[in-house]
Design a protein around this nucleic acid. Structure first.
Length: 578
RNA sequence: GCCCCUAUAGCUCAAUGGAUUAGAGUAAUGGUCUUCGGAACCAGAGAUGAAGGUUCGAAUCCUUCUAGGGGCACCA
């Protein structure tokens, strides 16, 4: 990388002056300040204030040294600005060499930050017999992208889907099916989950006046926990019906899981481990029986409020199953890092559970299972609705299938190709979820979600399609051109330099997005690249200006490569034509 | 009551403590319009909730206040 050459030069210059600060090169906000700049002199001045009059003075000394070490003359100009910034203007030679290196490599190589390490990413995690809504979409999309990013950074990634397939709601569901439902009819339905949800809603309506229903539900869940045959049969039915829908959605979104044959380990898988777990926690003195008979984890000095792991009737909770899950993961050698230590475990779950995860992680720390930083809650904000909170019980939910259908319908205004329209619609949804920091709430707005212009998924796909189209046209035309000047003789325009500089940033951006679990940073970068590319595209007749055709085609090629690679990391499939 | 998160153009969002000028998208306005693909490009206009403090330098860190969201033991 050319930038590395620059950093090496700066490091040598800094070493001459006995500066041991880490060196950073940034892009100045104002292009008049040069191509890159560093605040090294200002930072180093704090330690060297005796040898120099001012940061500017130090900067001047650095500049003199840099000039000596820049033997290839890749820096055109150096000057001091403001309180002591050193601004670098780079020679065209720098950019031309950079472009040449990049096109030779074809695909970008990323950091090996995660080399030898494992990461379990748990995402999507829909509930059985509940609607797969736009809310679950967020976890699915963001989690998938984070898993991709970690994989690109060298991690061995395990993709898990922690299905909500256990819990007291199944008692209610079973009662509802038995009382109001018809199994055959549900099985025949094109959307069995919708039928189940309708029954669930009815249960809650009836339960308002008939208090015995709740007790009956509790009884059925107990039966389920004790392995009652009929309870188990109905529960399994619910799972099968739900998977009919889930599998279709995941296929449509292009999302998959690696664990448990692609289904993910649901909560029920950990059911047999719960009783021993509770005993273990009690034996270790971490869990105690509370005033009303429930079992809770109490934290030292009451730093956190207690976490319940068993109700007074003995039934378990989400926390119990989560603890069991993480213990099982810890003991499973397949998940361990190359050196046998515990993997990174990420939960992509809504921000409203932040406090719960704090409790959970702290408990796992106290148990000596995981250390700080190994358990990460990637929070996503909620979709907010003008009508108030979505609630399955009340029946006011926006189903994902409905959103996908609308997105496709809107894209059909631009294309007749059904498959393209569907891909464009999905890209719109994914980009909308990924382009901003994930922990913010999103106002649910059909306009915004289905936006096909500006900072949107379709804009990105369109830009890629355009780039590949130029390359294709060039190939079709054959080898007609001959008037190319030698690359070294060409003078670069600002937009060309800007694009090449952006190409250089790609691996850094991926590394940062990956280590901060922040796909939106990659989105910002790719969008900037796409904007610059479109300006460039619009300004030049790439294939007709023979003098620079060769150079510009390489820029187009590199843009396409990065867009393709970057969007793939976000889980968005590019289309060569749309 | 206690705890956590958020506050940036009309709206939706960016901005590793950095720059005379806080970037985008969107809406509205004007332009490109015989185009290597107009789902595009170009232009002007528009903002850091309030008050203090730390720093050479603050949207960013600290304090207080205001507003919104979320959580607080038998839901997940």
């Amino acid at each position: 990388m050319q930038k590395q050459t620059l950093l090496d030069i700066l490091a040598q210059a800094a070493a001459d002056l006995e500066i041991d600060q880490p060196i950073k090169l940034e892009k100045p906000s104002n292009p008049d300040f040069g191509d890159l700049s560093t605040n090294l002199a200002m930072l180093a001045y704090a330690k060297l204030s005796e040898s120099f009059h001012s940061p500017k003075d130090l900067a001047q000394s650095l500049i003199d040294k840099i000039k000596i070490h820049d033997q290839q003359k890749i820096i055109k100009e150096l000057n001091i600005a403001g309180p002591g910034f050193i601004n670098l203007t780079l020679a065209d030679k720098y950019f031309l060499q950079s472009l040449e290196n990049l096109t030779r490599e074809k695909t970008a190589t990323f950091t090996d930050l995660g080399q030898g390490k494992s990461a379990i990413v748990e995402y999507s995690s829909p509930n059985i017999a509940k609607p797969f809504t736009v809310g679950h979409l967020r976890s699915t999309i963001i989690g998938d992208s984070i898993a991709n990013l970690l994989e690109a950074s060298g991690y061995k990634v395990f993709r898990d889907n922690h299905l909500g397939d256990w819990g007291t709601q199944f008692g209610k569901q079973i009662v509802a099916i038995k009382k109001y439902g018809d199994e055959e009819q549900i099985a025949k339905s094109s959307n069995p989950v919708k039928e189940l949800v309708a029954l669930y809603v009815k249960f809650h309506q009836e339960a308002e006046s008939d208090l015995s229903l709740e007790d009956e539900a509790r009884l059925w869940f107990q039966k389920l926990e004790q392995g009652d045959e009929e309870a188990l049969r109905l529960w399994q039915k619910c799972i099968d019906w739900s998977f009919k829908e889930f599998e279709q959605i995941y296929q449509q979104l292009g999302v998959s899981f690696t664990e448990n044959n692609g289904r993910g380990y649901g909560e029920s898988f950990f059911e047999p481990m719960l009783a021993p777990l509770i005993e273990e926690l009690q034996a270790k003195g971490l869990a105690k029986t509370g005033e009303q008979g429930a079992i809770l984890i109490f934290y030292p000095n009451d730093e956190l409020s207690p976490l319940m792991i068993a109700k007074k009737d003995g039934s378990t909770l989400y926390a119990t199953r989560d603890l069991a899950t993480d213990k099982w993961r810890l003991e499973n050698t397949r998940y361990q890092n190359a050196d046998g230590s515990a993997p990174l475990v990420i939960n992509e779950v809504g921000a409203e559970q932040a406090f719960y995860f704090k409790q959970l992680y702290r408990a796992e720390e106290l148990l000596g299972w995981y250390s700080k930083g190994q358990r990460v809650h990637v929070k996503h904000g909620l979709y907010r609705f003008k009508e108030g909170k979505m609630s399955t019980r009340k029946g006011n939910v926006i189903w994902l299938q409905e959103v996908l259908a609308k997105a496709k319908e809107k894209a059909l205004a631009f294309t007749k190709d059904e498959a393209v329209a569907e891909a464009v619609g999905i890209a719109a949804l994914k980009w909308n979820d990924l382009k901003r920091k994930s922990d913010l709430n999103i106002n649910f707005d059909w306009e915004e979600i289905l936006n096909l212009q500006g900072n949107s998924g379709p804009y990105m796909l369109y830009t890629y399609a355009r780039a590949t189209s130029v390359l294709r046209k060039n190939e079709e035309a054959g080898e007609a051109s001959a008037a190319n000047k030698q690359a070294a003789e060409l003078e670069l325009e600002p937009l060309e330099k800007q694009l090449i500089a952006l190409f250089e940033d790609f691996p850094e951006v991926v590394a940062r997005a990956s280590s901060e679990f922040a796909p939106h940073q990659l989105c910002n970068y790719l969008f900037e690249l796409a904007q610059s590319f479109n300006s460039f595209y619009n300004k030049h007749q790439i294939l007709k200006d023979l003098e620079k055709k060769e150079l510009r085609l390489r820029i187009v090629e590199q843009s396409a490569t990065i867009l393709n690679q970057g969007l793939a990391l976000l889980g968005i499939k590019t289309l060569a034509q749309m």
